[in-house]
Amino acid sequence: MSENVDLSPEAAVRSVMREILGLSEEQVNGFTAETELFGALPELDSMAVAGLLTELEDMLDIMIEDDEVDGELFETFGNLVAFAEMKVAE
């Protein structure tokens, strides 16, 4: 019943950013690897980060450990996507 339909890590990150931060589809579709996140998006506070990580775990069927989460991870959209891709490949 709850088997995930295949979803690329990048698509999952875009979808989760849109849902958690309440951003528009246009805005999220415009994100590139260089788009800055933490500090540039006022909606992205520590509470949003907590929800975002849990949703990503759920959508991509991965587990994210505490020590994998640092400031760098949320510096840019590209960093976050690269991290999601790495976790999926593990």
């Binding site: 520590s46 509470m47 980060v49 907590a50 929800g51 990580l53 849990t54 775990e57 505490d66």
Partner: peptide
């Protein structure tokens, strides 16, 4: 997990 992550942060 979300609640614990918020607490850790």
């Amino acid at each position: 997990r979300t609640m614990m992550r918020t607490r850790v942060a």
